[in-house]
């Protein structure tokens, strides 16, 4: 079985990588692209820590052989910061003290961003549903929900930022 080349865009940057057959995207991102912000928490699709966006859709990178994302646009937590400016979600996670150990945070932000990208002013219930596949063992979820709602409130006040986000 031979390695093959896989091309994709990672956070706006074109990548062409030689991939061992069947290698999981989470491992390729972390070990071949240096994008270690995406975490491997279970390998089962049960924790959400490896959530990334594939062509704008939130997916679990531990369940994706990298060959399957050939030609895709991938965004990870490292791509959420634009021009060294934090995304409103990141600012809100800081303001609401929504991190403790931080291991779930990247996945939480990617899950939340998938929501805000299509629904910039979600209800609390919609936020809860968006986060329902992401496990946090430290915070009790409340500060995270509050952060996503606060980010949405900021977006509502900043329509230009919403478009850029």
């Amino acid at each position: 079985m031979k390695s093959s080349y896989v091309s994709f865009t990672l956070n706006g940057e074109e990548k062409e990588l030689l991939i061992e057959p069947g290698r999981r995207l989470v491992d390729v991102l972390r070990e071949q692209c240096g994008a270690t912000g995406t975490k491997n928490g279970c390998g089962q699709g049960s924790c959400g820590a490896c959530t990334v966006h594939i062509d704008g859709v939130a997916m679990l990178s531990c369940l994706l052989p990298a060959e399957l994302v050939d030609g895709s646009e991938i965004v990870t937590i490292e791509g959420v910061v634009r021009n060294r400016v934090l995304h409103v979600l990141q600012e809100a996670f800081l303001a609401q003290a929504a991190t403790q150990c931080g291991f779930c945070t990247a996945g939480m932000i990617m899950a939340a961003k998938a929501l805000l990208d299509c629904d910039p002013s979600p209800s609390r219930q919609a936020v809860i549903e968006a986060l329902s596949g992401n496990v946090c063992r430290c915070t009790g979820y409340e500060p995270i929900i509050a952060a996503v709602l606060a980010a949405a409130a900021t977006l509502a006040k900043r329509p230009a930022a919403a478009a850029a986000a």
């Binding site: 699709g45 859709v57 939130a58 997916m59 679990l60 596949g133």
Partner: peptide, 12 residues
Amino acid sequence: IASFGAPAVRNM
């Protein structure tokens, strides 16, 4: 759909 998995799982 709402009772099935979570958003990322439903996307896959």
